[in-house]
Structures are given as structure tokens and as C-alpha cells.
Design a protein around this nucleic acid. Sequence first.
DNA 1: AGCCAGGATGCGC
DNA 2: GCGCATCATGGC
Length: 268
Amino acid sequence: MRIACTDFDLAATLESGQVFGFEKLADGRFEGTLAGHRVRLAQSGDQLHVENGKGPFSEKDVRDYFDLDRDLKPLFGILESEKPLAASLGAFRGLRLIRQDPWQALACFILSSNNNVKRIQHIFRNLEAHYSRFPSAADVARTHERTLRQLGLGYRAPFLSRTGTFLASNPFYLDAMRSCAYDEARSRALAFPGIGPKVADCVLLYGFHRLDAFPVDVWILRAMRKHYFGGRRVSESRVHAYGRKRWGALAGYVQQYLFHGSRNGVIY
DNA sequence: AGCCAGGATGCGC
DNA sequence: GCGCATCATGGC
């Protein structure tokens, strides 16, 4: 399948720490699961190539997943007007926010706390291998904690176990969060074990495509302190409130360019 | 060897 | 509200 795409950077999108299930192959293609199907992805210019097996799999699935029908010009207008962001735009123009499955985003970002991307990817692959797919909440619910530990989760095993158990017996809980206002959805995310302020915003941003969410991790905190607070050691909650107010409905997109740019040395 | 990783939690203050 | 120790694990 070939899909026309403008203002799209596949590699930046898949390597910017928002999704952990794609592996870069030796030839530069990416392999992972999209809309329930194993795919291999490659980009050449304004074309996205998708190889997949048989199944109910459409171009629309891909366009939705990669947010390809969004006009990024309003975002680019913001990024161009601020020095640190313009640098990231120059390097990663076309980085887009993926629409992930809410449960998968929630599970992955429980694993992400005090962890590094390489190891999160490793745990993700362990989970896929153990269950022959990414586990559902029900899968996790009937798995013993020690098994999760053996898959590499460490001390986060009980967090995921308890979350899976709750969602297996409340199967529409995440669906209901879709229609909540930001504050309500965030406080519900915060109520899960192992989910604090940063991961809650990741769940809203990546799992529910709430673009007004603004996750503040160590990279965002450093970059924001330096470029927007004159180097002052302001708190994460202040940075969070500031980012959301300054960039509003596109705060999450701005955050993604700031994060990826900072992590790759484009912003310093 | 020791520090860090897309932090969260529980504590004392 | 803030600061701090602790939490598995492995990459670097």
C-alpha cells in the first residue's frame, strides 16, 4: 500500500519516544503493529509504503494512526516563532503525534517511569513474545506478578498488575474517559497505581490524542527552565501549567518537538 | 563502578 | 506546598 503524505517524517515520529513497539530494521524500514496488523513501514519523500498481511486493513487506519490528515501549518507557525523550537522544526519537520490504543499507551508509560527507551522497548518485546501479541488488560489480570517481573518490569510489576485487574473488571472505564474534560480525565489517570503527573499527561496525549496535554519529563523540565524561565529551578507543576497556557490546544505537539529536539542535541 | 533513565510513592517538614 | 530516599533493571 502506498499513501500520499505531506509534512510527514516517519522516522522522527517513530523514534521520538511516544511509541515503543516499532523496531528499525537494517534497511531503515520499521516493523511493528498498527491497527492490529503486523506491518513494515518505509518512507520515500511524500510517500509512505505499508507492507502488511491480509486482513481488514485500510489506508484510513494508517492515516488516523499517524494523524496524517491534520494540517500542521498552525503548529509550524508557532515553532518558527521561537528559537529553540525552530531548531527542532528544522531537524524534524513532519514529526506527528500517533493515535495509540489507550490501554497500550497507559501500560507502556507505567513501564516508562525511571526507565530508559531502550529498556522500555525491550520489555515491550518481552510482553509481545510472552503473549504472542501485546497483552490486553485481561491478559495482565490473569498473570502473576512474578511473571511480569521476569519479563523485566521490576518494581513496576504490581502497578501494571493492579491496573490490568481494575480495567479487566471495568472494561469501559477508558472509553468513558474520552468524553471527560481535561482536568477530569487527568485526575482519573492519576488515580491508577504507578501513574503520576508526567505519565498521566502521556496517557492523555498519546492514548487519547488530547493535544492540550503537556508531559513534563526531565528533558522538558531542563529545556523549559533554560529557555523559558531564565535558568530558574521552577517546579514541574509550574512548567506544566506554563506550557499548557502558552501553547494551548497544540501544547502536546510543541512538547513533542521540544522533547525530540532536546534529546537529539538540536536544542541546547 | 557508578550514574542515569520520558518518575512515582511515601515520608517528614 | 517542598525535599528526599527508595524502588528493579540494564545500558553506557
